[in-house]
Design a protein around this nucleic acid. Structure first.
Lengths: 209, 209
DNA sequence: TTATTTTTGTTGCAAATGCAACAAAAGAAA
DNA sequence: TTTCTTTTGTTGCATTTGCAACAAAAATAA
């Protein structure tokens, strides 16, 4: 991974990853499996470049997209303990670079007395709070009582300053994120368009009100 | 609050709260408002004794119980930034003791060079991971497609070793936690009983299979 | 104690939702 | 290019779900 691709945030974070913390970096190609949750080793994964998707499949074969991970997001098997359904993390860009940090070496008091260890923990702490906030947004979304409310909440959160949302993945993927039936999702979009709440042009949605 | 009521975990945590971190402890009576999310000051609240409930009310008047907080749980307005709906934290036991920790003093490098500061951050880090795990459990619950699946998931997670779940709050409160209509919840319980999956005796539910 | 409020239990009904199915379009692979 | 796979768009239909309403029971307050 060439350094020109890195941003400042990431550079600072990497400075914190001093030699007292065990890390391994790995690059994944598109659609490649980053992690299945059979792995026991406690670790926190940090996305330094690219995108990934956390996917869940239940007994009935329903697929749910739990979360879309971007650069500087973290995830961990520590977050998903005692999950009933199967969980996979899949790379979602041509190249995704992930840094795995051993959980045990994070907690350990650094014997080398390096000045970075504390900074690393603080930084991870802030990333964890960000993740927590994202989880709460998802809970707020899923607690909406109707499909219409879910769609509008999602669109409002994701639209840009021009009130436009571009479907970069697919309508199918969004339905799986919202935990609703795809056909019903499409039907509701037509309804919202008739009510002049949105305007749909292919994979571009304008939010009018 | 008398010391006899405290457990070991809490005692250790309090040791970490050395004088370099700004904290305030406050005791709340049952049904008392601990925090409404208009408060701007960034702080992490730690429940050292008692119980609390995080409640959300949307524009349509739908009440949702986001989370039940127990001893040694944390919550923070940092987790709930940009929330559309109104959020309240209500004390849910005769006496709930909450310690508020200033977020700014957590992150700050301790000028007094105390040995506890790092331990405090590590401990909060672990509490944050626990909270994250609980959030993920809720997301797994809400991603279930039917009311029946939601109920069964909830009961399996909460039943004791004898496959018994006791309703300590109310059926109304559980419906609000599951984000489903109460009448439909009751109807579904009757159905599950007819299918011999559960056995309901007042506020006690036996999970048979 | 009695009065008042909240919860429980139940039902009918309208509306929302998921499911199955299929053709057309778009995208990916050979 | 052509072939194959995935996504999109749409519909009918059965089922699920929420809503409104109300009486009985339980819990709480006076």
């Amino acid at each position: 991974m060439v350094d020109i691709l890195r941003n400042d945030e990431d550079t600072i974070f990497r400075k914190y990853l001093s030699n007292c913390v065990n890390t391994q970096s790995k690059t994944f190609y598109n659609k490649e499996l980053i992690l299945s949750f059979t792995s026991i080793k406690k670790q926190i994964a940090y996305i330094s470049y690219g995108k990934a998707t956390i996917i869940k499949t239940d007994i009935n074969g329903n697929t749910t997209i739990l979360k879309e991970l971007k650069e500087q997001d973290i995830f961990s098997n520590l977050f998903l303990q005692d999950f009933e359904d199967e969980i996979y993390i899949i790379s979602n860009s041509a190249m995704t670079e992930v840094t795995f940090i051993d959980y045990s070496t994070i907690l350990k008091d650094c014997t080398k007395n390096c000045p970075f260890h504390h900074q690393l923990v603080i930084h991870l702490f802030e990333l964890l709070i960000k993740d927590n906030r994202q989880q709460n947004e998802k809970i707020e979304l899923l607690s909406k009582r109707t499909v219409k409310e879910k769609i509008l909440f999602f669109l409002k959160k994701r639209m840009n300053e021009n009130h436009v949302f571009k479907v970069t993945t697919s309508y199918k993927a969004i339905a799986e994120y919202l935990c609703i039936d795809r056909a019903n999702f499409m039907r509701e979009l037509v309804k919202l368009e008739k009510e002049n709440i949105i305007k749909k042009e292919g994979k571009t949605i304008h939010i009018l009100k």
